[in-house]
Amino acid sequence: MDVRKIIGWNLRRLRVERAISQERLGLEADIDRSYIGRIERGSENVTVATLEAVSRVLNVHVSELFAPVDPGAIPLRALKGGRPPHE
């Protein structure tokens, strides 16, 4: 797995673990939501500044985005879409 795929895998894992949508992550990191999606798919050469912004929002050290991925790991399911119902 190349580095872009590793970063994308870890970004998605950390984001989903924290129940943060791509849209919310993008807003808080001042990055376009579609760019977050491209990073997660491993199709972007992301900058250090972007990694720093994302890790700040996720409250992790940047190095967490480079953690080795278990070859047998199963991709995480997407978060449920849409807004929560009003009570």
Rank of each mutant, 00 (worst) to 15 (best):
G8M: 03
T47Q: 05
W9F: 12
P68W: 04
I39C: 04
L51I: 01
E23L: 12
E44F: 04
G72Q: 15
V54F: 05
K5N: 06
V16M: 02
E87R: 15
V16H: 02
A29V: 10
A29H: 12
R56S: 08
R56T: 08
E28K: 13
L76R: 14
L27S: 11
T50S: 15
V3M: 11
L58W: 09
S21V: 01
P84R: 12
R13W: 00
L11N: 07
Y35E: 03
A78Y: 00
D32K: 14
L76Q: 08
E44G: 00
G26E: 06
P68G: 10
L11S: 05
I31V: 15
L27I: 09
I20R: 06
L58T: 11
P71T: 03
N10M: 12
E28H: 04
A78Q: 12
E28C: 01
L14R: 05
R18K: 15
P85K: 15
N45F: 02
L27E: 15
P71D: 08
V54C: 15
V69F: 01
I6W: 06
S43T: 15
I36K: 12
I20C: 01
A53Y: 00
R83V: 02
S55F: 09
E87G: 14
E17S: 12
G42N: 10
E64S: 14
V60S: 01
L79D: 03
F66A: 03
D2T: 13
E44N: 12
A73Q: 13
V16C: 01
E23D: 01
S21P: 02
E40P: 06
G81E: 07
R15L: 05
E28A: 02
R18V: 04
A73K: 13
H61T: 06
A73N: 11
G81Q: 07
L25E: 06
R83P: 01
F66S: 01
L79T: 08
P71F: 01
G82D: 07
G72N: 15
L11G: 03
G26H: 07
M1F: 05
T47R: 13
P68N: 10
G8I: 04
R56F: 04
L76F: 09
L11Q: 10
R38G: 05
G8R: 10
S63A: 14
N45E: 02
L27M: 14
V46M: 08
S43E: 15
S43H: 09
F66I: 00
P84M: 00
A49G: 15
D30C: 08
S21T: 15
V46N: 05
I74S: 09
R18M: 02
R12M: 14
H86I: 09
G81W: 00
E64M: 13
R12G: 11
L27V: 10
E44P: 00
K80E: 09
M1P: 14
G8C: 05
Q22G: 14
R15D: 09
R18T: 03
K80I: 08
R18Y: 01
Q22W: 03
I74Q: 13
Y35D: 02
V54P: 14
R41V: 00
A78K: 12
G72F: 07
V16N: 01
L79P: 03
W9A: 06
N10S: 10
R56G: 03
I31A: 03
V62K: 12
R13G: 00
A73M: 07
E52F: 12
E40R: 11
E64H: 13
V54R: 02
